[in-house]
Amino acid sequence: MSEKSQSTNPPAEIVPIYILGKRYDVPASLTIQKAMEYAGYQLIRGCGCRGGICGACGTIYRFPNDSRLHFGLACQTVVEPNMYLTQIPFFPGNKAVYDIEAIEPTGVEIVRQYPEVVKCMGCNACTESCPMDIKVMEYMSAAINGDVKRTAELSFDCVMCGLCSSRCPAEEVQYNIAILARRLNAKYLTPKAKHLEDRVKQIDEGRYEVMLRDVMKADPAELRRLYIETRQMEPAMADEMWEPEDKRFL
């Protein structure tokens, strides 16, 4: 504990952390990101959404006398006393350039785009480094086995921060392989929404032209009336195929 915590005035507990090896004393309730700002950094790299989804602030840390590495997003991880940390705001990674219309949803295609995928040695360092608790190694092995759908589903929460790649002895770029799998899965292995196709056709044929142009011309009073009277509310618990009584505007 630093001397600051003895002070009666600021009630916040102060703890030491080591940013890039240098000690700063910061309030214990802060996230790593806010602690860096408190320490005096103006963040440019390593800061994006500040809400745990953009993957800008991947951070690696460890504690004295602890052999293990720890991983987190700086915006989501609360500081702990004596943590030694560095951000990895960027890590070089290859991205295959492909025409999504011209490729196949198969494991062979994934190997064609990312031949290194088969070099995975199953060490699990990727999974252990994932701040989103994704089973990275499992989706990599699904990719090697040609299970595109499983690769897509297991990697769905990936924020593409790159920590997995930074730890990979086989030099894989797991998150890019994952997004290829997700796009292939969504485009080719999931049935298309038939109703969407039908609706686009209806719009292109001009089905709503007159209806919409009429309501666009309505004066404010008439508009309010239509808003109140013609919008039957679909009940919250109605099943998917619920139909309104008034079908004039469909």
Partner: peptide, 30 residues
Amino acid sequence: YTLVTEAPKVLSWLEKLGTMFTKYPDGTMR
């Protein structure tokens, strides 16, 4: 007018690009 008439076209574009919408098994959008 533009927003609501383009909306289904945009969903269709995103579907074509390979966006993983949550769907029913037959492809109907949830």
